[in-house]
């Protein structure tokens, strides 16, 4: 036996938490939009308190997303929120804004901190910087390739490293209400109230007609998501061998049944590997259920794992 990496997914309701635990998740991230970004649903402190016993019974972890870029007016609430999260016994929080670090030092010193600066968590030395300042985990940028991911874990034996293995990724975040603005511009004022996740809006760039980029808004701004869904299941062994600590599945904008199927597939791979790392081999049929449920208009891709980028 070997230590199994965490299988992490974001959930938006208590029902989802339960369903995802049953499908094989060993960690769930929840939260509310006031503090956490791009969540599939609102889970208040009350919901968190209700979820915690269930999660812990499964031997799993419950994390809260506190990963907004905060403005002054959010700080008083933030202090109280962190103190409450600590009190109810949350297993960790993700943060990107240093104000969370500052606030937790004062208000919730025992909170476990996962540093997640989204696109900008890109190297091991910077992870160490945040580790020295209290973070126990780095959540890697999605734009890194396999070699970089593996190297980062190699350089960080004492820090947990989380990597997204499946689902869409955020590729643009603005404080501007871009969709509302556009609808107003084209004279569709009446439409501006319906620009959230449930509306299922997407953008098509002129010269890329076969790629659909989901876009939505909440009161904190606009988000554009990737046109493909990362899926590294086929090569999960590389990440397992490298001893990455947490495999994240992005559940956003996906039906629950799809997310459950994805969890089961990765669960199976992780368990098979744990039984016999040497003899482990990916079996194409593990992908069958995912492929059946995969949106035919969204490519299952390797994301940036095998892409060369220039600059």
């Amino acid at each position: 036996m070997t230590t199994k990496p965490e299988l992490l997914i974001t959930a938006g309701t208590l029902e989802e938490v339960k369903a995802y635990l049953e499908a094989g998740a060993t960690a769930i991230t929840v939260g509310e939009s006031k503090y956490g970004m791009r969540l599939p649903g609102q889970m208040t402190l009350e919901h968190i308190q209700a979820a915690l016993p269930m999660v812990h019974e499964h031997g799993a972890k419950l994390y809260a997303a506190v990963n907004h870029i905060f403005h002054n007016d959010a700080l008083p609430g933030l202090q109280q929120y962190l103190a409450e999260l600590e009190r109810v016994g949350i297993d960790g929080i993700t943060y990107g804004d240093p104000s969370v670090l500052m606030t937790s030092r004062i208000a919730a010193p025992s909170l476990k901190l996962h540093w997640n600066a989204e696109m900008t968590s890109t190297n091991y030395a910077t992870a160490t910087y945040w580790q020295k300042r209290g973070a126990s985990r780095i959540v890697l940028a999605r734009e890194l390739n396999m070699d970089q991911v593996i190297e980062i874990k190699k350089q960080l034996p004492d820090m947990e490293v989380e990597v997204q293995v499946h689902g869409m990724t955020n590729i643009y975040h603005s404080k501007r209400h871009l969709i509302q603005h556009y609808l107003r511009h084209i004279g569709k004022e009446e439409d501006t109230e319906h620009v959230g996740l449930e509306r299922k809006l997407f953008l098509i760039e002129k010269e890329r007609q076969d790629e659909k980029f989901p876009v939505y808004e909440d009161e904190y701004g606009a988000y554009i998501m990737s046109s493909d869904d990362v899926c590294i299941l086929e090569d999960l062994k590389l990440l397992l061998d490298a001893k990455l600590d947490s495999f994240k599945i992005e559940s956003l904008l996906k039906p629950r049944v799809y997310n459950e199927a994805v969890l089961r597939a990765y669960r199976r791979a992780i368990d098979e590997y744990a039984k016999d790392p040497e003899g482990y081999a990916f079996k194409p049929e593990w992908m069958d259920e995912i492929r059946t449920l995969q949106d035919p208009e969204r490519e299952l891709s390797f994301g940036f794992f095998y892409k060369e980028q220039m600059y």
């Binding site: 890109t122 643009y172 760039e205 980029f213 554009i224 600059y311």
Partner: peptide
């Protein structure tokens, strides 16, 4: 907090490769 360039042109925006995809035209 933008990787449009990475996705559209494989140019890393946070290392100087931004190709100003935010100024392109899109259909909603």
């Amino acid at each position: 907090r933008c990787t449009l360039s990475n996705h559209f042109t494989d140019r890393d925006s946070n290392r100087g490769g931004c190709c100003q995809s935010c100024r392109w035209k899109y259909d909603l």
